[in-house]
Design a binder for these strands. Structure first.
Lengths: 239, 239
DNA sequence: CGCACGGTTGACCTGTATCAAGCCGGGTGG
DNA sequence: CCACCCGGCTTGATACAGGTCAACCGTGCG
């Protein structure tokens, strides 16, 4: 758990509008800077935390993409989410004081370490921080609800389409194109997230390409017809 | 939003160990009593809140069982959870200040109304309350993770078996039998939760009965072989 | 009584899984 | 520099779990 020498304060971080509460005054801003207890670099394929490990901190992603997964004893893997810069991971650990999933870096990554008890202390002092924490957790609950909708009801095409729309929106919020997607995960990861086998992912992609909605080159996805993609995502044809 | 005349304080409520933080001193306990801004009765089939309604309060269930659902425009319904006494609903509303699902009473029910801003105020004063709120939200995230695992990976039998094991545990925590289950939801609700059609629910029940694991009489389920049920739930055969 | 709703069962269909073969591109070692 | 290998991906043939459609049952309520 090493601390970088050149430490960027949250108040100067270019991700602050994603992961910091808004409407802090200067004094509060400086206080929030102290929340971050250094950085951690995680190489591609390494885990940030694992199921069962004691929970001490939340992590704010500075760079890189992560997946969080639940492993079933027989080897099945459910990806519960993909997280990118500005997003917070580790919320699952709070309830039992230990992590309840694994977090794996899909590429070299860096996170800010936020000790959770400092976070609780500061929440008691700064209402904006407190509400921010509540909103982050609530957002995760709402996100998972929408994944449940996908997994419980949607056809393969819908699932993939909805994923691409969402991924594009999140890239866009970070200043990238919403239509020129670079996936950071394998087809396998995508399948484990969407409840589909890798062959189905591949075939479904081929179908969407055939309809002129996407073009696909490995992990680079180009959305050619966003309106059509959204229509597929909301189940326009699949009934 | 009427206030009952005979108001039971949280500190006297027989559900307190389920929904109140532990380790409060007497003064704190009395303060927490003030959180509850009356009760609300909801008749079977009525909604406590709906998607889009402004979020003001969380609700602690005193009696009755609820389902929370997301409705897709084409009529598909995903049940995101079933909640029973002592559980808290409404957490989805925090992030956007409006509810993001519907909550429907499956039988006549009563809830305590907990205005969320009072809850935040008190969280700042009493660390135990603050941590309690965080744990409740984190628990919901972990629960949804495990539902994602079911929906993404499990066979029909596994899903149903896992549901019964879980339902039994929750009944047991409330002083009922863990093996004599009374379901409060229709087969349709169960299907909408587990991502299965009603006919599949029915057939799968028949199969489990045939194997001597359950007996079923309408909504009364008797678990005859808990060990076998758990084995099915963890995918013993279904690989 | 009779209707409506929830549930079960059967016959058949289909979307996705499974199994198997082969492709592609990048990295390594001879 | 080429040969080879390997991981990630695609494609085809076939199998099957669960969906769909339809008939029917039971029970509780107006």
């Amino acid at each position: 758990m090493k601390t970088d020498v050149l430490k960027v304060a949250c108040s100067n971080c270019n991700l602050r509008e994603l992961c910091m509460p808004i409407g802090l005054d200067t004094a509060e801003s400086l206080q929030v800077d102290k929340l971050v207890d250094g950085r951690r670099k995680i190489a591609k394929g390494q885990t940030l935390f694992r199921n069962g490990m004691p929970f001490e901190s939340l992590f704010a992603i500075r760079s890189g993409v992560f997946k969080t997964i639940i492993l079933h004893e027989d080897g099945r893997e459910q990806v519960t989410g993909f997280q990118m810069s500005g997003e917070i991971i580790g919320l699952d650990g709070i309830v039992e004081d230990k992590h309840r999933c694994d977090s794996v870096a899909l590429e070299d990554a860096e996170v800010c370490v936020i000790p959770f008890d400092s976070m609780e202390d500061m929440s008691r002092e700064i209402p904006a921080v407190q509400h921010h924490v509540h909103r982050i957790m609530s957002r995760e609950i709402v996100r998972e609800n929408s994944v449940m909708l996908l997994l419980g009801n949607a056809q393969a095409e819908e699932r993939l389409a909805a994923f691409f729309v969402n991924w594009g929106q999140r890239l866009q919020a970070r200043g990238f194109s919403a239509t020129e997607l670079v996936l950071r995960m394998t087809r396998q990861d995508l399948g484990n997230y969407l409840g589909l086998k890798i062959e189905t992912i591949s075939r479904t992609l081929t179908k969407l390409v055939g309809r002129g909605i996407l073009s696909v080159a490995g992990r680079e996805i180009h959305i050619l017809d966003m309106a059509a993609l959204r229509a597929v995502a909301s189940g326009a044809d699949a009934q």
